[in-house]
């Protein structure tokens, strides 16, 4: 089946439109083991390290079944780098989806217009018909997936499912055929219902910050006694927390869904992200909050001092780290994580 790669520094790409065209939405992830060379010829050294990694991967060659790409408006870096991708990545279909910065009525209307344009360009390029009925059908399927993910997510908090394993599941859902992932999730849920809690005692962490697509990063936290019981990241709850309206105009429903779900740092007013985090800290009785910024990730860097102050006021332990997109830095980070694990209480 044809795949379209998605480059998104948030999680605002309406996968359902692609599914309605019988195309697999394939969220494009980085590879932290990659040696960056080619991307350095296009992107200055002080630009987002994760976006640079994505470009390197693309320049090294994409899978043959990837026939196109959508970059969704997120941060300044991914926005501006789209033109570079146009210059040097060999794909026939490339669309810049202008997911609005704002979330009001005018923004919802605008996003509908841009999605309609995406539909039209897809129809022309791939000779398909994307009907509203097919989009609604896709929405029903992704809603089922979202609900299952939400249920499965709870097993992190019950100390039955490791945060890293859950992260891998969400990644899989964002890259594979949704019908297949539905069956995989149903099986996983059944398996979890009969599973025992972990034997080891772990501290309960809420993970927030930039796009974190390396599950090994979360595994590394686990080796230090930190379990991610909840998150508000794009390869996490922000992908599945809310459901899309199944009645009425599906394009408008998609627009509303993306602009009404809990806010991310790439949107405005991003400081409201704290409200959702606060809610999670209470509901999931976390011991501490970990805010992770990929190096040069401006949206997170702007929000961090506000978050730090707000969590301090609530007397909730908060750790902010900037990471290089490389596993070589794990050992260095371990010292900070160990100190944090020691500092925070265990419920």
């Amino acid at each position: 089946m044809t795949k379209i790669a998605i480059v998104d520094s948030g999680v605002d790409t309406p996968e359902e439109i692609l599914m309605a065209a019988d195309i697999i939405p394939f969220r494009f992830f980085g590879d932290p083991s990659l040696n960056i060379t080619k991307a350095n010829e296009h992107v200055p050294p002080n630009h987002c390290i994760w976006a640079r990694n994505l470009l390197e991967r693309a320049l090294n060659g994409l899978d043959a079944d990837i026939k196109g790409l959508i970059t969704t408006h997120g941060c300044d870096c991914t926005n501006r780098e789209f033109d570079i991708w146009l210059e040097c990545v060999d794909l026939d279909f490339m669309y810049f989806l202008n997911a609005p910065l704002k979330r009001d009525k005018a923004a919802i209307k605008f996003f509908v217009d841009d999605m309609k344009e995406l539909i039209q360009q897809l129809e022309t390029k791939f000779n398909v018909k994307i009907t509203k009925e097919k989009i609604t059908e896709a929405i029903k399927l992704t809603n089922k997936i979202r609900n299952l993910l939400k249920e499965i997510s709870e097993y992190r908090s019950k100390m039955v499912l490791k945060g890293s394993e859950f992260h891998e599941i969400v990644k899989k859902v964002q890259q594979e055929d949704k019908k297949q992932t539905l069956a995989m999730l149903e099986n996983k849920l059944e398996e979890l219902k009969n599973k025992e809690t972990f034997p080891e005692k772990m501290k309960r962490i809420l993970l927030t910050g930039s796009v974190i697509d390396d599950s090994e990063f979360i595994k590394n936290l686990e080796t230090l006694g930190l379990q991610v019981v909840m998150d508000d990241i794009c390869i996490g709850t922000r992908y599945f927390w809310d459901s899309i309206e199944e009645n009425g105009d599906p394009i408008k429903a998609l627009s509303k869904y993306h602009l009404k779900k809990p806010i991310y740092s790439t949107k405005i007013p991003s400081l409201q992200r704290f409200d959702n985090l606060k809610h999670f800290t209470e509901k999931y009785e976390v011991d501490g909050v970990l805010n992770v910024a990929q190096k040069f990730c401006e949206p997170i860097l702007y929000d961090h001092p506000h978050m730090s102050k707000a969590f301090k006021a609530l007397e909730i332990p908060y750790l902010f780290v900037e990471i290089e997109y490389s596993r070589e830095s794990f050992k260095q980070l371990a010292t900070r994580f160990e100190a944090f694990a020691e500092m925070i209480g265990g419920k």
Binding site: P44, H47, D76, R80, D83, I84, C88, F296
Partner: peptide, 14 residues
């Protein structure tokens, strides 16, 4: 290549 203005410096290499 302005360290403070990534939008402006982005694309300069190309």
């Amino acid at each position: 290549n302005n360290m403070s203005c990534r939008p402006n410096s982005c694309g300069q290499y190309d």
